[in-house]
């Protein structure tokens, strides 16, 4: 061991404390009763400790969700921080669960905890992963659907980070529209 240097290094703090939530669909319970807070973290090291401790997205049972939200914001439309907001929605084809889902979800998490959206980071509320038999979905939630500059900046950065080509578009939907209409009829407020 001669010559080995042991460094005492402090953990790297994140700008925000984040909460990871898990939803498991049990039809005998209410939606809220199926939603569980897993844990909160606020350092890079603790993020990886958690990430490696839980199931990867592609291994979740259909009907389950992961949500990562800033501490103090609950992963539901009704939360005061979400109710005027909306989401950038990435819809995956069935076969993409095995090719893209884990990569897209990790990239989404890194965008959030690393504060990739620069001056519009304050608009970010969280992100939601839905694992579904008919096709998985990932969405980045922001707090104010009418904040065009913030929403479009976040959408452009997010699309680039996912490595989506110009041929692919992703849409932003206000939660008020999603809540009042059947999902496939929800109109996109913005598209990138």
């Amino acid at each position: 061991a001669k010559g080995l240097v042991f460094e005492m290094v402090e953990k790297h703090p994140l700008q925000n404390r984040w909460a990871l939530w898990f939803f498991k669909n049990d039809k005998s319970k209410t939606w809220q009763a199926n939603l569980h807070l897993i844990t909160k973290f606020d350092t890079v090291e603790d993020f990886w400790g958690l990430y490696h401790h839980i199931q990867p997205a592609s291994k979740l049972t259909p009907g389950c969700d992961y949500s990562l939200f800033k501490d103090g914001i609950e992963p539901m439309w009704e939360d005061d921080q979400n109710k005027r907001g909306g989401r950038w929605l990435v819809t995956l084809a069935k076969q993409q669960r095995h090719t893209d889902l884990d990569h897209f979800w990790l990239e989404t998490l890194l965008c959030l905890i690393g504060e990739s959206f620069e001056r519009f980071g304050g608009d970010i509320c969280g992100a939601v992963l839905n694992v579904r038999a008919k096709g998985d979905k990932i969405a980045v939630w922001t707090c104010e659907a009418d904040n065009r500059d913030g929403v479009t900046h976040i959408g452009r950065v997010y699309k680039e980070r996912l490595g989506l080509t110009q041929k692919v578009t992703i849409g932003y939907q206000a939660h008020t529209d999603t809540a009042s209409k059947s999902h496939n009829l929800t109109k996109n407020k913005f598209v990138v």
């Binding site: 703090p13 994140l14 700008q15 090291e45 990886w48 905890i113 690393g114 980070r161």
Partner: peptide, 20 residues
């Protein structure tokens, strides 16, 4: 200042052992 970390920086810590 604001704590921004790019993806490469974050990924560097992926397999780093850490005391918890």
């Amino acid at each position: 200042g604001k704590k921004q970390y790019d993806r490469e920086f974050l990924l560097d810590f992926q397999f780093m052992p850490v005391c918890i």
